[in-house]
Nucleic acid binder design. Structure first.
Length: 564
RNA sequence: GCGCUUGUAGCUCAGUAGGAUAGAGCAACUGCCUUCUAAGCAGUAGGCCGUGGGUUCGAAUCCCUCCAAGCGUGCCA
């Protein structure tokens, strides 16, 4: 799936090199160029549609001033049968190139032909990527922090998919290990308190104190009454967990679905305990002499593999640590299920874990480079100018459900993808709700609705869009029209760059810019203008803008209303 | 203490694998609807790119110093 922009840029390189050859033959340049040079899109349109730093890059090779070199190249350019019609030397020696109208017409025809596939490419063809995100602890409800990770992960996966990768969206369910034991204990105590009073047993410091635990215990009691009070503690706790955990997991699925996130795979940590992979992983580590025993626990010699200190793998009480399970889990992703790449989205508070897990993977012979961790700064919520602490302890966490009830999902998904993950964002709840009508997402949706409105209006006057010829599309010569087309043309590259950099925020910014250009066009060029071919060409352009906005927002599962 | 991340307009952020005069949005101010949606457009104002040095034709961008903020440094996850 070649795309026009790339092809045009590549052709420009050979056009320049040919000019150099001609100049060398004519004796006006000393020798062929060696240093590499770039074709770029200048920030300022006054500097052309494409520019090249070739002359600057070759100043040393040629022992000539960049400006002189640029003039020589310029004089020898041959634009016969290309999309260019002129070039200029500017500034210290930049070569600026200007596209002809045929290029703009062909861009539009290309967009129209690709339709809803416009923006897709095969850049990542053949590569299997696993994107794991949210992976909230099933011991309680999801909170605001998970909202950012959810929007980020889902949209990153979408971007990778559009760029041609084979993407799997995955949720890691921590349904085993220590925290489940604590969860069971907390539930058990709350359950007993229902019948024996709050003072009967006290909740230890390191248990879950949230209100949600009480509700879960109450729910269990509603189903089974007090019949578990007298059974063996282990059996009672197992019954509690078996009852509550699936419900919690289902609640997370429901919530995420409301948030328009659908996973391909819910991977349960317990699987690693049951299928022997955790055990195997520990055996591999032992056999590679990566472990030792101390104080009754099994330790990993992390310090010998770039770590700051050694880490416990199996506690003295026999329970494996989260770290041990995590090694087994990533070994599963990369070595068992054979993903070429695994991307994890983690809260920045887990950053200390990054080097450890990669180092451990390297140590067991799985290339840690294949694991990419995106650290996302946690969202700091403020309300009435004060920071809202999200503590699970106090049970005051703002849940994902609360958030989705307050702020439209389109807005949340868009907003969380406006900034790079590494930015520490402050999120004023009141402002987010209050300003929702001014949210950039509405600005983009409005552009789409406006175009639909033009169509409706013209339809009511019995004017309908028709196919346009290349010649007709070449009538779009206003600066606002050309800007718009140029921006339309960059979607595919934008998606590829977003995929390369793991930065879906590029797409929201792209869409805002597209909306801006549409609004500018709308204010300076009337579609219904009395000139039939021009009107049809503008309708064609509008249609391309509409489908491009739709493709971009569809990709992020954000709705595109036809009227607002 | 050590480690990771971040410092760009009053606020929230861009700045594309050094490039041409550092850009948007919000907030403020001034204009534009008898003509396809004013949820829009045009304009004004606002900056020692945290500090100090270095690298080169050229640095917000790369290297080092320092300052500030957030987080981490559990037999928690």
């Amino acid at each position: 799936m070649s795309h026009l922009v790339k092809k045009t840029q590549d052709s420009l390189k050979s056009i320049i090199l040919n000019a150099v050859k001609k100049a060398v033959a004519a004796g006006t340049l000393p020798c062929d160029a060696e240093s590499s040079f770039n074709i770029e899109v200048p920030a300022d349109r006054l500097n052309g549609d494409f520019s090249s730093n070739a002359a600057l890059a070759w100043a040393r090779d040629f022992r000539m001033s960049p400006k002189k070199i640029a003039q020589e190249i310029c004089a020898n350019l041959d634009f016969e049968d290309t999309y260019f019609d002129k070039a200029e030397v500017a500034g210290p020696g930049f070569l600026n190139f200007y596209l002809n109208q045929r290029y703009y017409a062909d861009i539009l025809l290309d967009i129209k032909e690709k339709g809803k596939n416009y923006g897709r490419s095969d850049y990542g063809k053949g590569e299997k990527i696993n994107v794991e995100f949210v992976s909230a602890n099933p011991t309680g409800p999801m909170h605001m922090g998970n909202a950012r990770g959810g929007a980020l992960g889902d949209c990153l996966a979408a971007v990778l998919d559009f760029a041609g990768y084979d993407v799997t969206r995955e949720f890691y369910v921590n349904d085993a290990g220590n925290q489940i034991d604590k969860f069971a204990m907390s539930l058990d105590i709350r359950y007993q308190q229902i019948y024996k009073g709050e003072n009967f047993v006290e909740l230890p410091e390191d248990s879950y104190h949230g209100e949600d635990i009480k509700e879960c215990a109450r729910d269990f009691a509603d189903s089974y009454g007090d019949k578990y009070l007298d059974v063996d503690e282990q059996e009672r706790r197992k019954a509690l967990v078996d009852h509550v955990l699936p419900k919690n997991i289902q609640a997370m699925k429901d919530n995420l679905l409301k948030y328009r996130i659908e996973y391909d795979k819910w991977f349960h940590e317990s699987v690693l305990y049951n299928n022997g992979e955790l055990e195997q992983t520990l055996e591999v580590m032992k056999s590679k002499d990566l472990t030792y025993e101390k104080d009754g626990a099994l330790w990993y010699k992390a310090t010998e593999h770039g770590g700051e200190k050694d880490e416990v793998l199996v506690r003295a009480n026999g329970n494996p640590t989260y770290f041990a399970a995590d090694i087994a889990y990533h070994r599963n992703k990369l070595a068992v299920r054979k993903f070429d790449k695994a991307i994890n989205i983690w809260g920045a508070d887990h950053h200390g874990h990054v080097a450890r897990i990669k180092g451990a993977l390297d140590a067991i012979g799985v290339d840690g480079e294949r694991l990419d961790i995106i650290l996302m700064q946690l969202v700091r919520l403020t309300r009435d100018g004060e920071v809202v602490r999200m503590s699970k302890r106090t049970g005051k966490a703002i849940t994902l459900t609360d958030l989705l009830e307050d702020i439209p999902i389109d807005a949340v998904r868009f907003l969380f993808n406006m900034r790079e993950p590494s930015s520490q964002m402050e999120f004023d709840l009141d402002l987010a709700v209050e300003q929702s009508a001014k949210n950039p997402v509405y600005y983009c949706q409005y552009a789409h609705a406006r175009i639909c409105s033009i169509h409706k209006k013209l339809n009511s006057e019995n004017i309908f869009p028709r196919e346009c010829t290349q010649e007709e599309l070449e009538l779009l010569t206003m600066p606002e029209e050309k800007e718009l087309i140029r921006h339309l043309s960059s979607l595919t590259d934008e998606i590829i760059t977003a995929a390369k950099n793991y930065d879906p925020a590029r797409i929201t910014r792209y869409t805002v810019e597209l909306a801006t250009l549409l609004h500018k066009f709308y204010n300076s060029c009337r579609v219904k203008c009395g000139d039939e071919p021009l009107m049809q060409a503008r309708l064609f352009l509008c249609d391309c803008v509409r489908s491009t906005i739709k493709n971009a927002l569809d990709m992020f599962k954000i709705t595109v209303p036809e009227s607002m």
